[in-house]
Amino acid sequence: MFKKKKSVYLLLAGVMALTVIIEVLFAHPHYHMLWNTVPGFDLIIGFAGGWALILLAKVVMAKILQRDEAYYETDNCCDSGSAGDCEGSSTSLRKDGEGNV
């Protein structure tokens, strides 16, 4: 779908140009803030907002919040270790019914 990035960029650029032209010619905003009145201002919101969210999610949140899939299955004693290292202890905990709540 996005293998030919240039074609996609061109298509989107065309769409954006068209909407801006339509906005200039026909739009009658109900509200009078900057993003309501300046044609094409929403492009900035879309681009900057998307960029900021990807940065926030993929760079900041992913690093802080993402863990190995077996994170909750492991015992507290080996939180930071790999799942394989504490497979025995987590299994025995589950059998005893004392795994994580």
């Binding site: 989107l12 993003w35 990807i54 949140m61 190995d68």
Partner: peptide
């Protein structure tokens, strides 16, 4: 036009960073 513009611009960002958008095996 507001929504189409927002969508078009955001799609450009997605295409730009497509290699980073693929999720990987991890829990959040």
């Amino acid at each position: 036009t507001q929504y189409i513009e927002i969508f078009a611009a955001a799609t450009i960002v997605f295409v730009m960073y497509i290699d980073h958008m693929a999720p990987h095996k991890a829990i959040t």
